[in-house]
Design a protein around this nucleic acid. Structure first.
Lengths: 234, 234
DNA sequence: TAGATTGTTAATCGATTAACAATC
DNA sequence: TAGATTGTTAATCGATTAACAATC
């Protein structure tokens, strides 16, 4: 019979990988890709932490949630750890992705080199603007034609995409989101400045330029105030 | 003489606005701008929380760090709360911003409507590519000419920008960052997939497409595994 | 006064950190 | 064996939540 544990320990054990850890795994992944490319075979938690801007204690804690992939007294095998992190993140499989809204941002996203190189395969470009529908865009060496978003249903069953990117203006975002969800998309990366309504089981992550700038401005303001204080104190 | 308080309470009181709260203030700000535009005069924490996707307890806690700007039994005056949040975030002043790297992404950022409307004033566009230098870009109704990044020093003292956006390829990012810092920029929004080295006192926020997609893929993988379990169980 | 809603308290939860036993 | 470094523990810290007294 299992011994009763503290409630905390049980919850941590059950809940899988903590959110905070998941958000850092891509950083470790990136650093390891770079190290592997430069031929580094072995790395310590101290060095990898330095390369990713976290503390070594945090790094080791994070990695311990994935398993025991290091060697005490030695460090981590770069290729092996990279593989394990890739597997945890689901990057050992291909993820077909559709992009909706092919304006400046949509073009930038379609042309982003880090997409295809890490298993994210852009398989469809959609827009509602007649001016843009039919445009040919080269994505990772393949030519794609911008399709009418209203014809999404004709393409989704062939692409099988479960990830969608929304790069439309605010006004179109919810409608596009509804279409995506209706045709099987269960993960959405949203660049429109709107809180999207989605059914349970659909994940949305929002990237908002304005938010990032606001946070910078907040700290910038604080620094300016601090400088004033420092000046008047001297 | 002040009564001794618990250590926790003291730290919270001294430390200003918690980071987690600061990251949510822009969400409240956005929601309030929308409400004000629609002529809503008064809103409860319950309603505003609903509109921003947080719990009302968290919202009230967040707002309490700014001050007491609501009325018990009544709610919050939309315009007044909007002003107070704007002031806290530093949005009641103008922030001149320079953008470095005027490729697809740089163009998208320069054309982003949410920039100018919230006090972020694009005052300079820079690139190192001879093909791009000299290009004329219309930003918020004003025509700007893409300048050579190496001539940054000639422009920075006239613009006085303290916020810089880096939208260059990975290879150029650190050099551009160094130039920006050298000429007085103390806040950087970095879209390049690199950990920038900056002196103390300079804030960097990184936005990384790949990171966001990795996190989505992680959760997508989990959902797929869950579906397998559900299927085999039934 | 009765009803509504804020601002604050205290409990809980999750994340971070420092230290070190385990072990190569 | 001696030195190095992981993986884990336990303490601390910060964020979230529920409940409710204060007060309009």
């Amino acid at each position: 019979m299992p011994q009763p544990q503290s409630p905390k320990a049980q919850i941590t054990a059950r809940g899988g990988i903590p959110d905070a850890t998941v958000t850092r795994l891509p950083m470790y992944h990136r650093a390891l890709v770079g190290l592997a490319a430069r031929g580094t075979l072995l790395i310590s938690s101290e060095e990898l932490a330095e390369a990713t801007g976290v503390t070594s204690a945090k790094l080791r804690k994070d990695l311990s949630f994935l398993g025991s992939y290091g060697t005490r007294g030695v460090g981590y095998d770069v290729e092996f750890l990279l593989y394990q992190i890739s597997r945890s993140l689901g990057l050992t499989q291909e993820w077909p992705v559709v992009i909706c809204g092919i304006g400046n941002l949509g073009h930038a996203l379609a042309g982003y080199p880090g997409f295809a190189s890490r298993g994210f395969n852009v398989v469809g470009l959609f827009d509602s603007d007649a001016q843009r529908i039919g445009e040919e865009v080269v994505v990772a060496g393949t030519q794609l034609v911008v399709q009418d978003i209203e014809l999404l249903h004709e393409h989704m069953h062939t692409t099988g995409a479960s990830i969608g990117v929304i790069a439309t203006p605010e006004s179109a975002a919810q409608h596009v989101c509804d279409l995506l969800v209706k045709h099987g998309v269960t993960s959405i990366l949203n660049f429109a400045p709107v809180l999207l309504e989605v059914p349970e089981g659909v994940d949305v992550r929002r990237v908002d330029l304005a938010t990032e700038l606001h946070i910078l401005a907040f700290h910038e303001q604080r620094k300016a105030q601090q400088r004033l204080i420092d000046t008047s104190a001297s």
